[in-house]
C-alpha cells in the first residue's frame, strides 16, 4: 500500500454495505485514512462516494461492514451541500464557532489560511460559491481536527480557484498533519498531492497512487480514455503522452459502466 508509514489509522471501513430504497449503494467497500495522508475518492455521480464518507463519519446506519475510528478522533466536516435559510442570520464569524468555541485570534488565523479573512463580518447567505467553500474549509479546519472530510470542496469554484483550493488543501495537510478524505467527481482535477486515489462505483474499483490508478484497467473501463488522460495531465504534466491516449481511443468507446472487469488492458 502506498501509504505513509508513520501515520496511525484514523478511520477504517471494512466491507461497507448499504442498501437504500431497494438499491445497493455500497457493496462491500474497504477504505481507510491515516494521519498525514490525503485520500481522494473518485467515482461517477451516484457511485456512493458521499454515502461512503457519511458512513465513515457514523451518519448513516450500515447494512453490513464495520467502521473503526481512532478513539477520541476529532473531525472537521465540509458537507457537499450547505445552505443556510435566509431566516437565520449568520455571520461568517458566528459560523466558525458553530460546533466549538474558538478565540477571535484562532478564527482570524483559520480564515487567513484560506484567504478569507476579509469575509469575517459578512452574512453566510451572501457569499459567492467560491467564498463559501473557503469559509467552510476554514471552519472545518478550526480546532485542528485529526481528520478532515471534504465532500466536493471545489464545487462552484472556477478553474483557477479550483487549482488554488487544491494547493491550499495540500498545504493544510503539510502544516497540520491531519488526514484528509476528499471526495471528487471532477476526475480531471484530482490533485497532485493526493497520496492515494480510491475509485469506487458502489464497490471498490481500484486504488493506489494517482498515476497507477490512471493506468488501471478498471479505472479506464469506468471512466473511458479521455478522463484517464486528463487525470494524467494534471498529476504528471509530461507523463500522459502516447501510450494511454493512443491506445484507448481504439478500444475505449464501447466501455460501459456496468462492464468493467479487468479484461481490457490499456497499455
Amino acid at each position: 500500500m502506498p501509504e505513509r508509514a508513520n501515520g496511525t489509522t484514523l478511520v477504517e471501513g471494512r466491507g461497507l454495505r448499504l442498501r437504500l430504497g431497494g438499491h445497493d449503494i455500497l457493496q462491500g467497500v474497504d477504505v481507510s485514512v491515516r494521519a498525514g495522508e490525503i485520500v481522494t475518492v473518485i467515482g461517477p455521480n451516484g457511485a456512493g462516494k458521499s454515502m461512503m464518507a457519511r458512513a465513515l463519519l457514523g451518519l448513516v446506519a450500515l447494512d453490513g461492514g464495520t467502521v473503526t475510528r481512532k478513539p477520541g478522533l476529532t473531525v472537521g466536516y465540509m458537507p457537499q451541500r450547505f445552505a443556510v435559510d435566509s431566516v437565520l442570520p449568520l455571520t461568517v464569524r458566528r459560523l466558525m464557532t458553530l460546533t466549538q468555541r474558538a478565540s477571535a485570534a484562532a478564527i482570524g488565523a483559520a480564515l487567513d489560511e484560506v484567504g478569507a479573512a476579509h469575509l469575517l463580518s459578512r452574512q453566510v447567505q451572501e457569499l459567492s460559491g467560491g467564498e463559501l467553500q473557503r469559509v467552510l474549509l476554514a471552519r472545518a479546519l478550526l480546532g485542528d481536527p485529526d481528520l478532515l472530510v471534504l465532500d466536493e470542496p471545489i464545487q462552484g469554484v472556477d478553474v483557477t480557484g479550483q487549482m488554488e483550493l487544491y494547493g491550499l488543501i495540500a498545504r493544510l495537510r503539510d502544516r497540520h498533519g491531519c488526514g484528509i478524505l476528499l471526495i471528487s467527481h471532477d476526475l480531471h482535477l484530482v490533485m497532485a498531492a493526493t497520496d492515494r486515489v480510491v475509485c469506487i462505483n458502489h464497490h471498490l474499483c481500484c486504488e493506489g497512487k494517482p498515476e497507477a490508478v490512471s493506468r488501471d484497467p478498471a479505472y479506464l473501463a469506468l471512466f473511458g480514455a479521455q478522463a484517464a488522460q486528463n487525470l494524467a495531465v494534471y498529476t504528471h504534466a509530461h507523463d500522459h503522452s502516447h501510450d494511454l491516449a493512443g491506445e484507448v481511443v481504439e478500444d475505449g468507446h464501447h466501455h460501459d459502466h456496468g462492464d468493467h472487469h479487468h479484461a481490457k488492458k490499456a497499455s
Partner: peptide, 18 residues
C-alpha cells in the same frame, strides 16, 4: 450552541460530535 449547530446543518454537527 449544539442546538444552533444542528439547526444550521444537522449532519455537520453530528459528524463533529454534537
Amino acid at each position: 450552541r449544539p442546538l444552533l449547530a444542528s439547526s444550521v446543518h444537522e449532519e455537520m454537527a453530528r459528524a463533529e460530535g454534537v
